Amino acid sequence: MNEQSLAGQAAFAPANTADIADAMIVSAGFRIDVDRRRGRAAGLNPSGRFEPMRREAIDDGWQNLEDLPPFKTEVQIEKPRTAITRNESPDIPFDRSINPYRGCEHGCIYCFARPTHAYMGLSAGLDFEAKLFAKPDAAKLLERELAKPGYKPRVIAIGTNTDPYQPIEKEWRIMRQILEVLEKANHPVSIVTKSAMIMRDLDILSAMAERNLVRVSLSVTTLDRKLARTMEPRASTPTRRLEAIRALSEAGIQTSVMAAPMIPALNDHELERILDSAHAAGATEAGYVILRLPLEVSPLFRDWLLQNYPDRYRHVMSLVRSMRGGKDYDAEFGKRMKGAGPYAWQIARRFEMATKRLGMTRRSMPLRDDLFVPPDGSGVQLSLL
């Protein structure tokens, strides 16, 4: 990239020296060639934050960087000790969750789960989208945990970190195996996804819905197909997600819509349209989350924004920081999901007025946990007493 084009891109950056420097460094030397990352959202693949060394792209004269092979989806098997993850976060409405996969092929550029790939010695950038981990023993581990003496059932959340219905689920079918265990045990589950693949499991979900054991939320970020393709390259199209809402609702399943994340000056103007469309498709509840940019997500998102919407860079980041106390992100409980300040307040009031108009403010009945029947315990270690 020559100095002239570099200066042209930097001109769109905020009048913040650090931002301009970041934008120039990213554009000048660390960007992965578009042909190597086709169908991916992240343009960078920086070293994980725990790595002792940092990688930098240089031309040593031996091989042209454009000659390197494209990024392909690779899946490794992970062997966890447990299937259920516990949390005590005060602003999350569940205390346990299951993640069938680590990393996500949907590749949403804003995904707050990207930094978790650093624990695997990998990048939160392209590695998060292309180097995935599957947990094929998850269903067996879950069955064993549910059979333990003293286990008390409460709603298990799935899809809170990475999407259980990402494309590799077609082959691995781990999510379906988990649902089979939960359905057999009459265990309540709450699912969040942005994939129409969930319709594959309508047989299990509708059977669970008859006993009030399941709730599903479809994440609809935008109705603009072009924006969705750029921002969430391998997720279902907005139209397909609305079709999934309709199919789930018609099957008698409690279905809601998550307008998340709302990104100021990029998709927040669609909030009411998203809610209207989801309500027309059958969603009875709704929620929203303001854009979150923790750790590595911030430079990845800012680079993506600079490359795809350079004319909006300054405005978007200014509004984001106005909701985060002048920073890219504020992780304080109670504020991290909704933000703070006048702009965040405005979005909250718009959401409140729209859901009230649509009758989406009522809360559905709590999922039942009194029907739980522990598995037979096969595979559970016996007591030595």
Rank of each mutant, 00 (worst) to 15 (best):
L142Q: 05
Q9Y: 14
A247Y: 08
L305W: 04
P374I: 01
R55C: 03
G29K: 04
P294M: 10
D95C: 10
D19I: 06
V181A: 03
L179M: 10
A340F: 14
E285L: 08
R357E: 06
T237I: 10
N2K: 10
V34H: 11
W304I: 12
K335V: 12
K327S: 04
T239L: 15
L141I: 04
P80H: 13
A28F: 13
G339R: 01
C104W: 10
S219P: 02
L227E: 03
V189F: 04
A138S: 15
N267W: 10
R86E: 09
G61Y: 07
A209F: 02
L205M: 12
E296W: 03
I204P: 01
G334W: 09
G43E: 01
D19G: 01
D19L: 12
K152V: 13
D127P: 02
M53D: 12
L141W: 04
E250K: 08
P69C: 12
P80Y: 03
L44P: 00
P264M: 01
P69T: 10
E88G: 09
L141S: 00
K194D: 05
A331T: 02
D60M: 15
Q63P: 05
L218W: 01
D224F: 09
Q4T: 13
K226E: 03
M353F: 13
G377C: 08
P80N: 08
K135D: 00
R31N: 12
G282C: 03
T222A: 07
E232T: 03
G61W: 14
E56G: 11
R37V: 02
P238S: 13
G39N: 03
V297C: 09
V216I: 14
E285V: 07
G125I: 12
L126Q: 00
S249P: 02
